[in-house]
């Protein structure tokens, strides 16, 4: 299980990296943490012609507060750095919880925040977290920068709006509104393994016992990470009763995901999981918000 040969470039600045990506076009591929790409290359299922390794581009690794109380995370920031960062822990405890479910420590020590998002694995945590937290992505190319919302970024399994000469440079998370609770719910065969269904949810309460906003992101149950719309349609402005949550959960399981049958479970089983997990996530998030 040895990878096929490839041309290798190790730029030390963003500018150099963008030059190289432009030059290589479709034959170039960004190498970030490598924790998804290299196993695929070892199986020779992925055979990129050329890799542009960003590990020496130190300027892409940072976590900075934004003026509005959010955070900006450089694309090459390792998952474990995000996981342990004090600001992330204070402002987005749900993100920390989510990252802890990514494989194991050894993988998180190398895997990168932006790399996982750009890889757009439908079974990965971070694309879903980006949807949930309404992240904004800074995309750079030689032509300049453009900003794309997470909701517009993912277009299919392992597919995003990124062009070959572009790189995802920064992920900006808007501030978490006050009175927000969050919950992470997952069923996987094993700890650190792929989810058979997973739900991350935030619920913001309005101070009078009613829901201001309910967000539910799902992954591992469709062609990409998903943001369900029904929960907010039903719950916003309402008292989140068990009945209302149950209705939402049933609806999402039936209409807002598309899990397939695989060796570990049938579509029916996985829709059932979505139903249970959406209910649990919303119930838990409401509880958390009330604290």
């Amino acid at each position: 299980m040895k990878p096929a040969p490839f041309d290798y470039y190790a730029p030390t600045s963003v500018e150099e990296a963008l030059d190289k990506l432009t030059e290589l076009g479709y034959s170039g591929k960004v190498l970030a943490g490598g924790q998804s790409l290299i196993p695929a290359m070892n199986f020779r299922m992925a055979r990129p012609t050329a890799l542009v390794d960003l590990n020496k581009v130190k300027e892409l690794s940072y976590i900075k507060p934004t003026a509005d109380g959010g955070l900006a995370i450089g694309t090459m920031t390792r998952d474990s750095v995000v996981e342990e960062d004090i600001m992330v822990n204070e402002r987005y405890p749900i993100l920390v919880k989510t990252i802890k479910h990514i494989a194991h420590k050894q993988i998180r020590n190398r895997g990168t925040f932006g790399g996982a998002i750009a890889h757009a694995d439908p079974a990965a945590q971070l694309p879903a977290a980006a949807l949930l937290l309404d992240a904004n992505f800074k995309i750079l190319s030689k032509a300049g920068e453009r900003w794309v919302k997470a909701t517009d970024f993912f277009i299919g399994p392992f597919m995003t709006v990124l062009e070959p000469e572009e790189m995802l440079a920064e992920v900006v998370l808007p501030p978490m509104p006050a009175n927000t609770g969050a919950s992470y719910q997952q069923v996987s065969r094993q700890k650190g393994g792929y989810a058979q269904a997973a739900v991350i949810s935030t619920v913001t309460m309005d101070g009078s016992g009613k829901v201001k906003e309910a967000r539910v992101a799902l992954f591992s149950v469709g062609e990409s990470a998903l943001l369900a719309s029904k929960p907010n349609q039903v719950l916003a402005g309402q008292v989140p009763t068990a009945e209302a949550i149950e209705e939402v959960a049933a609806y999402v399981a039936k209409n807002e995901c598309d899990p397939g049958t695989d060796i570990h479970g049938t579509e029916e089983y996985r829709r059932n999981l979505v139903h249970v997990l959406v209910r649990r996530a919303l119930t838990d998030a409401v509880q958390q918000a009330k604290k």
Binding site: H264, T266, N272
Partner: peptide
């Protein structure tokens, strides 16, 4: 017996 099978 996986959970997926047990469910059924």
């Amino acid at each position: 017996m996986s959970p997926g099978k047990l469910y059924h």
